[in-house]
Design a protein around this nucleic acid. Structure first.
Length: 570
RNA sequence: GCGCGGGUAGUCUAGCGGUAGGACAACGCCCUUCCGAGGCGUUAGCCCGGGUUCGAAUCCCGGCCCGCGCACCA
């Protein structure tokens, strides 16, 4: 079995494990081991701070199972189902539409029937010369049954986004019908990948953090854009042109379509840097026209360089009003918000005013509907006769039943279906990338050392307390400090096994930024040493000040030598 | 899904038809005033299922997993 050095360490030290391992495992599923789970939680919390707390946004949690209607409306039931054709002799499987286009130059609908027809007419053969079996659908969504017996068809959600679109009416109301607002969700999503591979890079069950930011279609801006306007980012546009450019300039030059996309690119970059992604291994790449999802008009991926090459870890898409329109159409609900104008607009209108006293006797019970139909007509001149449709019946109405009036109406606003900008984060890939970008080696005292240089604030174990000697009174004193630090909310570990040097290396390898050592001097003046993972330098501080100093160190990148007398400098 | 290569303690590895050996790690005890020290001891393994054989980790078939290539990746 081949395994990269980093994966070997992650498994051995308790970051990630293969799921169902004792039963032989199953590709596409991983377990977050204790350290990996803690790391991902910390990354999620930082994400929350960026994309929920610091936006006009709220986080919700909706079911991971969705009913069929949702995915018919979203388009996943069709566009997530590729029609596949399989060769009888060589066994190769192709996406039917791709293969037909490549071989015959024909655009074929992605339905089994359409593909079958084309295959029959052109007697389509496999590259190997073999015959194809009948085309069959290949759905990337896991399906399930809700309720007993035949039940109701459901799917495991392929993205968390739909739960937020489905709740739009309630959400718009929650935000008092005022744009813009954002809705976030962190949770599991599922795709029945054909061949999941490359460790955590392609999973069948994965973790997403998504923000749906609803904006007025005419105002694709963000009030806080100035925060990131001068940030210089690496961009690869859809023509493969590379730019190293400020976001402001990228918007001005039209490389990024609008300000709000640029805003989220900037924010995403800051977030990724904060959790430990390396700037020089980060770029934003625009989707090519034939690459975008069925719902997006523009999309920029954050990509990071790892041992698997450049991999996508975030997608920032302009989904426009696609989803809300579709759900509106399929559910029959009005999913617009009312946007008042800054000032009411006076509109002169020529309209038909029905004369109910005349309509009533003639049209009887239909009179009311006829009147409503008349009112909704647009007229320019003064017609002798108009035609309206009531319950599918066409009715001619002559001018004795209505008047044409010129009226001036005050319009205070309009109904708008918001557009949505969606930054969507793949947490598993992000967590893995952070680990890979933090993994390093150096030489300490002439020996190679493996060290995980995680940012202090994402490290799963923040502090390790170590008795210099594994005997009393060192052990009791160390345990006492452990309890104090834990009470202060610091993730603290205790270790008295082996020699002190071995323990330092252990904590270096899993990325613990600080080790506290209880030594002989501790019993003379109640001081201990703090050792820094990256420099291996140590400073001596009073035990009573430990919680305060460690909390400051863990939320900043300050040097430990600011906090005490240097005890041992390597 | 197809093809090629692989799967032996936690990790790495030897064995390749005759009852599995080592290194490191882990755990316990001893020793140790600061960067994978030493001594003694302990735990722990042939991916799963079938076949061939007197006998299978070893040969054959199927499955699962891992790596690579093709295909797929809303």
């Amino acid at each position: 079995m081949h395994m990269s050095e980093i994966m070997e360490m992650l498994i051995r030290r308790g970051y990630l494990w293969q799921s169902f391992e004792i039963y032989g495992g199953m590709a596409g599923f991983i377990d977050y081991a204790p350290l990996g789970n803690n790391l991902r939680r910390k990354i999620e919390n930082i994400w929350r701070r960026y994309f929920v707390i610091n936006e006009r946004a709220a986080e919700i949690d909706t079911p991971t199972i969705g009913i069929e209607e949702v995915f018919i409306a979203s388009g996943h039931a069709t566009s997530f189902t590729d029609v596949a054709i399989e060769c009888e002799s060589c066994g190769r499987v192709y996406r039917a539409d791709h293969y037909v286009k490549e071989k015959l130059g024909i655009e074929v609908d992605e339905t089994v029937e359409a593909v079958k027809e084309v295959m029959d007419v052109y007697e389509l053969k496999c590259e190997c010369g073999g015959k194809f079996k009948d085309p069959a659908p290949m759905n990337l969504m896991f399906s399930t049954t809700i309720g007993p017996g035949r039940g109701k068809k459901g799917y495991l959600r392929p993205e968390t986004a739909q739960g937020m679109f489905v709740d739009f009416k309630r959400l718009a109301n929650f935000f008092r019908e005022k744009l813009p607002f954002g809705v976030a969700q962190i949770g599991r999503a599922y795709r029945n990948e054909i061949s999941p591979r490359q460790g955590v890079i392609r999973l069948r069950e994965f973790n997403q953090a998504e923000l749906e930011f609803f904006v007025h279609p005419g105002e694709k801006k963000h009030p806080n854009f100035s925060l990131y306007a001068n940030d210089v980012v690496k961009l690869v546009d859809k023509f493969d042109n590379e730019h190293e450019i400020s976001l402001e300039e990228a918007v001005e030059k039209g490389i990024i379509a609008n300000q709000i996309l640029a805003y989220f690119i900037g924010k995403t970059r800051r977030f990724l840097l904060e959790i430990g992604i390396k700037d020089e291994k980060l770029r934003f790449r625009q989707h090519k026209d034939d690459e975008r999802a069925h719902y997006a008009t523009d999309c920029w991926d954050a990509e990071v360089l790892t041992s698997y090459g450049w991999i996508e870890i975030v997608g920032i898409a302009d989904r426009t009003d696609y989803d809300l329109k579709r759900h509106s159409k399929y559910s029959g609900e009005d999913l617009s918000v009312f946007v008042p104008y800054d000032e009411p607009v006076k509109v002169r209108k020529r309209k038909i005013v029905p004369i109910l006293s005349k309509l009533g006797p003639v049209f009887r019970q239909k009179a009311k509907k006829v009147a409503e139909a008349l009112e909704s007509l647009n007229v320019e001149s003064e017609p002798e006769e108009v035609e309206v449709e009531v319950d599918g019946e066409k009715i001619k109405v002559t001018k004795e039943f209505f008047e044409v009036q010129d009226v001036e109406e005050e319009v205070v606003g309009e109904k708008v279906i918001p557009h949505v900008i969606e930054p969507s984060f793949g947490l598993d890939r992000i967590t893995y990338s952070v680990l890979e970008h933090s993994f390093g080696k150096d030489v300490v005292d002439g020996e190679e050392r493996r060290v995980l240089r995680l940012k202090r604030w994402v490290s799963p174990i923040e502090v390790a307390v170590l008795p210099l000697l594994s005997r009393e009174p060192f052990e009791s004193k160390a345990m006492e400090i452990v309890h104090t630090l834990r009470e202060n909310g610091i993730f603290t570990d205790y270790d008295d096994s082996g020699s002190i040097g071995r323990r330092y290396r252990r904590y270096d390898e899993i990325g613990t930024p600080f080790c506290i050592t209880v030594d002989h001097q501790t019993f003379e003046d109640d001081t201990v040493t703090i050792r820094d993972r990256d420099t291996t330098a140590q400073v001596r501080v009073e035990v009573s000040k430990l919680p305060e100093i460690l909390k400051e160190l863990l939320r900043s990148e300050r040097d430990i030598t600011e906090f005490g007398e240097v005890f041992r400098q390597v």
